[in-house]
């Protein structure tokens, strides 16, 4: 690795500046194009847990998906793990191998067993020996509490179990950064807890960017909360600030909507 592409200096893992992404309207729909990102800035340093919150359509998911190249911003600068993600010459696979992603709908590989879901990428991408990858996969499944399902197909698992497998699958690549895209939004309420528990446990030793509607999780685990609206970060800071004493009126309006009926700790 050259100095320019090596590990980011000062432990800065994500450095996004002025990201813009416009989805053109469907031809003939008569609707205006959608500005999903409109001057999005975000810096994430090693060890941070950053939660992105905001109303639907605020650009949270687009921003997160830009961090591992699933979306391509039209303008701005974006460095992830020291790589310039908007450089067309960049081998995106190299970055993606080091950035774990957990999706709202799990996206487990249904034709492979749970264990094979975990070993596929380490063997194919990292070239690890199969038995070594399997051994480590079993350890990871143990850690997320589903080692007994290693031989099952994902279809036989509950939503909560699926998402725990998805987290273990991402961890099997030894990522330096983990991205979570609304990891509990597709779960039945009684399964949210077990997934958050795994994420809470992981937060001690991983840098994470989490798009979430779980304000309790954000308050407890996040080192920083960023509130997005209209494709940009409107307000950010420690959870005690953003969630409990929001300065921006739009943050306040959003929090009032999502926290309706829940006790809010007094400052």
């Amino acid at each position: 690795m050259s100095a320019a592409e090596g590990p980011a200096s000062g432990g800065v893992l994500v450095d996004a500046r002025g990201l813009t992404k416009v989805y053109p309207a469907a031809w003939g729909s008569g609707r205006p194009p959608v500005r999903a990102l409109d001057g999005f800035d975000l810096t994430v340093t090693e060890g941070e847990i950053v939660c992105l919150i905001g109303p639907s359509g605020s650009g949270k998911s687009t921003a997160l998906r830009a961090l591992n190249g699933l979306e391509h911003p039209d303008a701005g600068t974006l460095r992830v793990l020291g790589h310039d993600l908007l450089d067309p010459e960049l081998d995106m696979d190299l970055v993606r191998a080091d950035v774990g992603m957990v999706f709202q709908h799990f996206n487990l590989f249904p034709h492979r067993t749970v264990l094979d879901n975990l070993t596929l990428a380490p063997v194919l991408v990292r070239g690890r020996p199969v038995d070594e990858a399997r051994r480590e996969a079993l350890e990871l499944l143990e850690r997320v509490g589903i080692a007994d399902k290693a031989g099952e197909r994902p279809g036989r698992l509950s939503g909560g179990q699926k998402q725990r497998v998805a987290i273990a699958r991402a961890l099997a690549m030894h990522p330096r950064l983990m991205l979570f895209d609304e990891p509990t939004s597709a779960l039945d309420p009684e399964m949210v807890g077990e997934v958050l528990e795994v994420m809470r446990d992981l937060a001690h030793r991983m840098t994470m960017v989490v798009v979430t509607h779980e304000m309790g999780f954000a308050r407890e685990v996040a080192t920083r909360v960023a509130f997005l609206d209209g494709g940009r970060v409107v307000e950010e800071g420690p959870p005690s600030g953003v969630l409990d004493q929001p300065r921006h009126p739009r943050t306040r309006a959003f929090l009032e909507r999502v926290l309706v009926g829940r006790p809010r700790p007094t400052p």
């Binding site: 591992n68 699933l70 696979d93 190299l94 993606r96 191998a97 080091d98 950035v99 774990g100 992603m101 999706f103 709908h105 996206n107 487990l108 590989f109 596929l120 990428a121 194919l124 991408v125 998805a166 699958r169 991402a170 690549m173």
Partner: peptide, 22 residues
């Protein structure tokens, strides 16, 4: 489902690896 390709690519698989194995 498009999510299958996205998940495979997110793990670092190339387009053709994702196509072939997933």
């Amino acid at each position: 489902d498009r999510g299958q390709m996205e998940a495979a690519r997110s793990l670092g698989l190339s387009h053709w690896q994702a196509m072939r194995h997933v």
